[in-house]
Design a protein around this nucleic acid. Structure first.
Lengths: 133, 133
DNA sequence: TGTGTTACGTTATATTATAACGTAAGAAAG
DNA sequence: CTTTCTTACGTTATAATATAACGTAACACA
């Protein structure tokens, strides 16, 4: 590490970590603009792309949002459970299941490279009949 | 069936079926505008939403695109394999795997309602070293 | 200190998606 | 058949998300 681009990436990551939930790229932008008003979307997207490639951040495709990786040192293919009520996101890992999934997709010769697995539903707090949040 | 909204939905579905691959909402719009220049994005999105709810169309979240459901009479939770080279999308169903997935997400009390499973990789034609386009 | 690479700043624009509101078409009841 | 209700549509406008292009500055490495 210590390469170029570290600074912006760590600032973006810090913002995502402070909020414990998903943020849109523009929400991150807003926040960083408070200390540096000149930042442009491009810069944020660059940092987010790099962080995503490094596995430090996940992109929630179905929400158009980003969240800091909740697992230590996890590189690929997490399962993201998204509460439709309070917005909480929980991350799970299941290597066996990923293998199965790859097997199913691969049965016709398909070679999997990246998995997007997002589950929308209700978290335990919201599902029991109480509005949490 | 036979309810209101059928016509627009069937036109949109027809477009998606003609192309065998994913199309953006605006691509569908372009195409339908050739016969009816006055159509607006709103209309297309309305139809796409309805079709998606009815399970006739899948939204590829990670591509911001839509594709006609390839299975007969399939309502929910397909596995979509997306070739990053030629763009082909193949649909699989694996109820067992979905149950497992729900189980994993649900281990902390999460109640799954909708699954988004998209696998990016290379299809058999593109993976063997030949550009199949 | 020179040289190459990489991310950044900046500007502009493309792409995707929704809000709001009046209207017209179709369904259901009388 | 006509009234009434619902629902999707047309229309306008705009919001939200994302990328292109290009010059520059910072850093790495020799």
């Amino acid at each position: 590490m210590g390469k170029q681009g570290e600074k912006m990436q760590s600032e973006v990551l810090a913002v995502l970590c402070r909020h414990r939930g998903p943020l849109s790229a523009y929400a991150v932008l807003e926040e960083l603009r408070q200390s540096n008003p000149k930042i442009a979307p491009t810069t944020i997207y660059r940092a987010l792309t790099a962080l995503t490639e490094r596995g430090r951040v996940h992109r929630l495709e179905s929400l158009k949002a980003f969240i800091a990786c909740q697992c230590d040192r996890h590189q690929h293919a997490s399962i993201l459970s998204i509460c439709g009520d309070c917005g909480a996101v929980e991350e799970s890992i299941a290597p066996d299941l990923l293998k199965e999934l790859s097997g199913i997709a691969g049965k016709s010769g398909f070679a999997p490279m990246r998995h997007v697995i997002e589950i929308h539903g209700l978290c335990v707090s919201c599902g029991t009949g109480e509005g949490a949040a």
